[in-house]
Design a protein around this nucleic acid. Structure first.
Lengths: 186, 186
DNA sequence: GGCCGAATATATCAGGCCGATATATTCGGG
DNA sequence: CCCGAATATATCGGCCTGATATATTCGGCC
């Protein structure tokens, strides 16, 4: 009995709420967990088959007209698997931030160029914050309290990060001596 | 001319500072960038060969006794590649947080169990914070100002995250009605 | 009625990357 | 002299991304 990947549990968690097709699972992930756990078609479809083989989900044909469509729902075994996973302590904590990597090596550039990196990072976080903000009414409407909690955490995180970028930018500019070539276009 | 992976630039950035072997690169990554950009032997060794083929680094034999050892240093072309990359806006922003995923699906559990997830997440962040704190004197000693800036960002982030976990835990406990079975051992 | 583009639905694949493992040598300590 | 830790390189299964391919259906427009 091989243990499942975390992505398998995303699928179990989503089909537990309601029966869904692979396509719907992907769309839901993109609209919710994507910011802290993404999933691609290349994982979802094979994983659904594996979960079906193990009896943790069951698929049934639900075609729309002549287009083939398989909708999956969770089984009692699947529900038990999901709960057992939820009760085990989390193991994966990963981050890949190319901006921080560039900042780490910024000594190879002029100070004005380091500031550009921080501005790009800040702009990215503000954009993510706006996306999350737009999702909030939808989560509130569904009355999904844990997803809402997580979403609010995302809002706070992006705000903290954008603010940090701004403070570091100010520190670098101040260290340069207060005046001198502005360097960039903003 | 295929464009390089971000991991290739980590290598370029590190061998720019000083010539290093694959083993030393891995050790340095584990001691510095690991928190926002990790790299494994399975990437480092093949990547060093590719970079050498493209003339961005040069390797030279530097055996210790009878043990084979290749030390790489950056070339002028490699330095140009690195700077060009540093000047391009960052593209990769990824996070994989199994704890947030579990919290997202916590409706399948009792509230007391959701609290356990938050405690595990908080403990992890506090542990990371302690690790970063231990690294700080080393970074200060080296007078590496950008790496130090990034390290301080990591300290602030882990503190923010741990604090968020605690606040969410309090909210959940309060929503449960102030009293009732405590559930867990701490 | 017919066309087009967007959405629905599934599948595949190259390549990045992780974690574990294997192999061999050298160094420090007891 | 032996052993365990550190140095050094290499390999591999498996997860995951992003792009691409293939069909079908739906909505809007003229």
């Amino acid at each position: 009995m091989e243990s499942l990947s975390s992505t398998a549990y995303v699928i179990l968690g989503l089909v537990r709420e309601q029966p869904r097709s692979g396509y719907e699972i992907k769309a839901t992930v993109d609209g919710t967990t994507r910011f802290f756990w993404a999933a691609s078609y290349g994982q979802i479809y094979p994983e659904l088959k594996r979960l079906a083989e193990q009896g943790l989900v069951v698929g049934s044909d639900a075609p729309t007209g002549g287009r083939r469509r398989t909708v999956y729902e969770i089984t009692a075994d699947g529900e038990e698997e999901l709960k057992a996973w939820l009760r085990r302590p989390p193991e994966t904590y990963e981050m890949r931030e190319e901006g921080l990597l560039k900042l780490f090596f910024a000594a190879a550039l002029e100070p004005g160029e380091a500031v550009e990196i921080l501005r790009a990072m800040r702009a990215h976080r503000l954009a993510t914050n706006a996306q999350l903000r737009a999702m909030k009414p939808i989560a509130e409407e569904k009355d999904a309290s844990y997803p809402l909690l997580v979403l609010e955490g995302g809002l706070e995180f992006t705000e903290w990060f954008a603010d940090w970028c701004e403070r570091v930018e100010q520190r670098i500019l101040a260290a340069r001596g207060g005046s001198g070539g502005r360097g960039a276009k903003a």
